[in-house]
Design a protein around this nucleic acid. Structure first.
Lengths: 413, 413
DNA sequence: GGCTTTTTTTCGAGCCTCGAAAAAATACTG
DNA sequence: CAGTATTTTTTCGAGGCTCGAAAAAAAGCC
């Protein structure tokens, strides 16, 4: 079934380990790396010497941190920003943004564009994505040859191998193999990632103390999405990106959901559902797109006085609470990050949510369930795409490292 | 974070790989092992020669399979039954059973006992478990020294490290660290496993074609439990055994569940819920224990004519269907095995189940969702415990293998 | 300036896996 | 029935990798 470990895998994996340690720690010394990886100093010395020679890592003068301890000062190792670059493409409702990011994770170029995703024909949508990437790649300031990976993020369902968009609320089009399209167009390996998964990846890098092994990122926006990290790994479905929290069933046969079915969590907690409920429209009313400004105004009104607006948020909280309760029955409680425009209204949602979750098996330790909010999802998605692309480069491009150095590897110097 | 690969890990892992290949294939030749593991013939030859010398594997004469092909006949490698033994302990409602199993997986001794688990005090319950194991271990026919692992399975929630029973429907007692208790008593490493997880493990060994990487085992009995295998690995919660499918919320504020909460799937699909509904009792009625024979009679009645009995199964199917729909929204559809006494009534459950699941996002490809039934859960649980214990021996006891052979390892012969 | 302390590199030993070739064990062939 | 072809298994030397110990390097301390 799974495959044995060949001898050459050893170096490959340990190289990846070292790169991962450097990316995580920033500027660790060789001694620190030896400690975190459990490998011997000699091994770390050999591997890092290789990586420096190959231009992947660089020694950094620790200017002020020195002169505190006695012995030989530690030399920090850092990622060489010029070792490679990656491109992120984020496609969301009526909005396309692209960024070029160096190997150390710094944004070195970006471009954003409004477009009408809902009505665009297939060719045009694909064309826009290709064009915006091409413009960045043809930027004369940029060393095109060093771009080693493209990571595209989209709101909606992707396949479990991160190759294609299967379905998305931002367009009626389905099954667009963006990863293959971009690879073919630019000859650079690409992936097509789910937006909420990328939010989770970004949170793991942003705040590793809070979001390390088990946590949940929930997008509260027009739709309801989820990115799930369990035991340190991003959770995906067996066929698709999975984790469609918004389409768990809250009330069988209940309110009409954007997906055409009834009773989904999203049909009570999505922006359109909150709006529909606040406007005292029927639960069968066709979902409409509500702007962020309108949602903020709605939240303000709900805070002001009791009424249908406040009730709408209460019902959203209830749906989210019972949904989380069912989720927690499966995976046990974990910290939650609420992301998106309605996360800014979490004060209106939280009481009913906590009340609902307390009525579920998953809410047994409801006081230990923590919530954090982040209103702006786009930066998170881009950050997640960037980290995903960079760790791919670490592990798949720089970790084999054998085909690059033709023989003259470690015996020089 | 995760640790680098040391040089000695290599042999250890590849030994484990070989043992795993042999356990899976039965009597593979060295050539077959080389093919499945991807290791070279020389490596397999060296490792298997070690394992044979250590008495873990044995060559087996392939009596009739030979004389079909031309060249040198393949020599089958098999697990040496006497290399070790494991003990399984299965504790279920009013029933305790223990078995001793040899390294090749054959039962070599067993004992079963009825006891009143619901009223037993803590010391007595623990005492009975210890006593039954002791009786088997002190059997003069058995080589006690070779017992390398005890795996205990119980209906209920265990912790994610498989050390303790946290909660169980078979006893009002909570938080019994059975694994520690057995280890202390017998000086043999032990685990405390969740019953449904063991069902899933057993199915994976019984029918690897059908149940390989992604599948669901659902226990339809007094309560509703689930064992989940995703991407080839048993799924567990972050703190507990997790996968409490029966306590996902079907109808917020709905029928009274055995867990004291309302609207759980189990409160509609557990034996007591079906019974309660068929007897036209209130949804608030306290759950009662229903015997297997009564359930079979109820199913017979439901098959006979339309009426409250048939309606009760219909409602159970609806709850299971919406629950599966929510589960599939998270993990995508996968084959399902229905286990337990009510699995024998799956014909009564299936129509409503399929109808419900078709109304959910997870049921999008409802025709591709397959169901299989197995009325008897106890043999599955024991089998799962046995395989879990045996693979532990493969990987943790026989795979280091270094401390056992003092120097005189491979250079002999 | 010598001594202490800490980090990093060097060096030889010990394993492990691999590929190629040899050995072993059987069926086919004339 | 002896020789040949075929397939499996073992043997052997080469190449790599990691490790521990010792050496080297680079500071601060007195």
């Amino acid at each position: 079934m799974s495959v044995g470990i060949r001898h050459d895998d050893l170096r490959r994996r340990n190289r990846a380990m070292v790169l991962s340690a450097v990316r995580r720690a920033g500027q660790p010394s060789r001694t620190e790396i030896a400690a975190t990886t459990g490998l011997s100093h000699s091994t770390i010395s050999a591997i890092s010497s290789d990586l420096i020679q190959e231009g992947i890592l660089a020694e950094s003068k620790p200017s002020e941190t020195a002169s505190l301890k006695r012995g030989r000062p530690q030399v920090g190792l850092a990622l060489n920003p010029e070792a490679a670059a990656v491109v992120t493409v984020v496609l969301s409702l009526n909005f396309l943004s692209v960024a070029v990011i160096d190997y150390a994770g710094q944004v070195i170029a970006e471009e954003q564009r409004r477009l009408d995703t809902l009505t665009m024909p297939r060719d045009e949508l694909i064309g826009e994505c290709i064009a915006i990437v091409r413009r960045r790649l043809e930027d004369p300031d940029l060393d095109v040859g060093s771009v080693a990976r493209i990571a595209m993020g989209i709101q909606g369902i992707t396949d479990s191998h991160a190759r294609a968009m299967l379905w998305s609320p931002i367009t009626p089009l389905t099954d667009i193999p963006f990863a293959d399209i971009l690879e073919k167009e630019f000859g650079i390996p690409a992936t097509m990632e789910n937006d909420c998964n990328m939010m989770a990846v970004a949170l793991q890098w942003r705040d590793p103390d809070r979001y390390r092994d088990n946590f949940i990122a929930i997008l509260l926006s027009h739709g309801i999405g989820m990115g799930l990290v369990l035991k340190g790994n991003l959770f995906t479905g067996t066929h698709s990106s999975g984790g469609e929290f918004g389409h768990m069933i809250h009330r069988p046969g209940g309110a009409l959901c954007r997906c055409g079915r009834r009773g989904c969590v999203e049909a009570y907690a999505g922006n359109y559902a909150i709006w529909r409920s606040a406007m005292k429209m029927s639960e069968d009313a066709e979902p409409v797109d509500v702007g962020d400004a309108d949602m903020r105004a709605l939240a303000a009104k709900a805070r002001e006085k009791d009424g249908p607006e406040r009730e709408a948020y209460r019902r959203a909280g209830e749906a989210l609470g019972f949904g989380l309760g069912s989720l927690f029955a499966l995976i046990d409680p974990a910290p939650v990050a609420m992301v998106g425009v309605s996360a800014a209204a979490f004060d209106l949602i939280e009481p009913a949510l906590r009340e609902a979750i307390a009525q579920t098996a998953g809410g047994q330790h409801s006081q230990s369930i923590s919530f954090d909010t982040e209103p702006n999802e786009l930066p998170l998605i881009r950050e997640g795409c960037a980290m995903r692309a960079l760790t791919f480069v670490d592990q798949e491009i720089f970790a084999p490292g054998v085909q690059a150095r033709t023989g003259a590897g470690k015996n020089v110097a």
